[in-house]
């Protein structure tokens, strides 16, 4: 399983998403878009939206902390 979390500093839902993955014992890679402008551009292209967190699970992007969808993609429920 490959999980990437796109975040920005001071984005509370990003922290919530990271805490949730940690609680569930899921390891992930974090990309801070404030330090990586090209990642921000990629996200807009991928999701059509200008917001974080975006959690990419096995190539599928989830915009925002959408717990049911995240659980489903992770096979948790």
């Amino acid at each position: 399983m490959r999980v990437i979390v796109f975040t920005a500093p001071g984005c509370p839902w990003c922290t919530r998403a990271k805490n949730y993955l940690r609680e569930r014992g899921i390891s992930f890679k974090e990309v801070d878009i404030s330090r990586n402008p090209s990642a921000a551009r990629d996200l807009v292209r991928m999701t059509g939206q200008t917001g974080v967190p975006v959690i990419v699970i096995n190539g599928k992007p989830v915009v925002g902390f959408n717990k049911p969808l995240i659980d489903r993609l992770l096979g948790l429920k």
């Binding site: 984005c11 402008p37 996200l43 200008t50 917001g51 974080v52």
Partner: peptide, 17 residues
């Protein structure tokens, strides 16, 4: 909203470089 309109600077600023 979320596509050019935002209510949180710290969250979304990097999209507006």
């Amino acid at each position: 909203t979320g596509k050019g309109v935002s209510y949180c600077a710290t969250c979304d600023a990097p999209f507006y470089k």
